[in-house]
Design a protein around this nucleic acid. Structure first.
Lengths: 243, 243
DNA sequence: TAGTGGTCTAGACCACTTG
DNA sequence: AAGTGGTCTAGACCACTAC
């Protein structure tokens, strides 16, 4: 079980500022209060304010000009995925303006192929849990997601697994593992027959294939994901910022 | 003209650490010296070391474990694009293990279409400079790149423009503009005839289309790019890290 | 228990932009 | 000249992990 610990000061400041931006208290394009004003108002050090502002800046949410001030970026409000979210599909669907939902299709055990074994650093033939799920944007199927987890990691009966959870939470709740980093490969593809059927596409349509690997802090591969993404409905866009 | 200013202490520390990791002085998977050891050795404060380590950590280059130490991530060494580089094609080609080169195909003036005008916040019909370039990986053409820049931004004769430069440098040298942030849209597509011809693909092959918009700190749109990316040769992969 | 990274502070000085 | 963000320091305390 995980203790609910109070958020750090920095996190609280971040929530507060994000909220003010979201709600328009700091209007798009306008200049925000200076670092000193914010640190005075909130009763924290300027350094703390700065770490938060730096985080918002790399997400492109604010623009900082030396000698001038900090401005709310009007343009990024509408952009779907900030960098940390390429693989967080619910989040991505939501920021595309749809209501996300997840339908678990199947939970099956199967032996690891050569390729899977290599990627997961286990022996070929070892048992994997294969979870297939379908993500909807409003009522439209948009992402078909298959994730395989080495069965040896799982500490709970697989019947009890809630297939509508985020992979992050599944690993936390049923495997007691934390994700430290993720590698995502992006490919274009024509959908195979089974994928077209589920996503309601033609066989000549192109889709995006996102191959995702999740790793723990020990560098252990935790999960392999193959995700088929209907990019005619969902926009996959990244914001990148400098300085 | 731009003054060459000495790098900040933090940047120097970053270069030093990246170098040591690259050259294996800090071996993949091994534990690095502690923050205090590094700050002592380099004669800088622990805070400075920490900002650098934080930067390396979000790029996935190192893994930090509270109460234990900082480890070199063995897995990320080979990954092509870290987050800041999705659109930096030379960099991307290089980290895929090829030698990058750029061949300028054409530099032409043309009126802005409705769509371009909207995206660039100018009037339809205004003059644009359209630069078409081809990126090679070793000797193979892999990315066809078209970039359009409002002609009003350009402060030098267009004949003088060095088409083999990075867009960042072109904007700096010929427009006196700095890129503050970038929005990249990723789509799958079947190549149009002219693209297939240049990239030596079949018309049934799929490619990635990267639509990139570059903005200044004032939120002015600077450049619009449409890039056709042969993902059967180049791997487009992102690393994302937490905490 | 010792050592590590995580958080936070208070304050100094610099580089830059705006009026 | 005044105010802003950018850089850096020294030091405190906490949470966690290993031994």
């Amino acid at each position: 079980m995980r203790l609910i610990q109070p958020k750090s000061i920095a996190d609280q400041v971040e929530d507060l500022l994000r909220g003010r931006i979201r709600e328009g208290l700091y209007a798009p394009g306008s200049r925000m209060p200076s670092e000193s004003e914010l640190s005075d108002e909130m009763g924290v050090s300027r350094a703390t304010v700065r770490t938060v502002l730096a985080k918002l800046a790399v997400n492109g949410l604010i623009l900082r000009k030396q000698g001038d001030g900090t401005y709310v970026n009007a343009r990024v409000q509408s952009v779907s995925a900030n960098l940390g979210n390429v693989w967080d599909f619910s989040c991505l669907i939501e920021s595309n303006g749809f209501v996300p939902s997840i339908q678990p299709l199947s939970n099956k055990l199967k032996p690891a192929s050569e390729k899977e074994a290599l990627a997961l650093a286990i022996a070929p033939g070892e048992t994997l849990l294969s979870m297939i799920r379908l993500f909807y944007a409003d009522k439209k199927p948009v992402i078909l997601a298959q994730n395989v987890i080495p069965f040896s990691l799982i500490r709970e009966p697989i019947d009890s697994i809630d297939g509508s959870l985020h992979i992050r939470d599944i690993l936390q709740n049923y495997c007691n593992q934390e994700i430290a980093f993720v590698i995502t490969d992006i490919h274009s593809a024509t959908a195979s027959p089974d994928v077209t059927a589920v996503l309601q596409k033609q066989e000549t349509d192109t889709i995006l294939e996102l191959d995702v690997s999740f790793f723990s802090k020990d560098n252990t591969p935790l999960v392999l994901g193959a995700n088929y993404f209907d990019d005619s409905v969902l926009r996959l866009s990244l914001v990148q910022a400098w300085n």
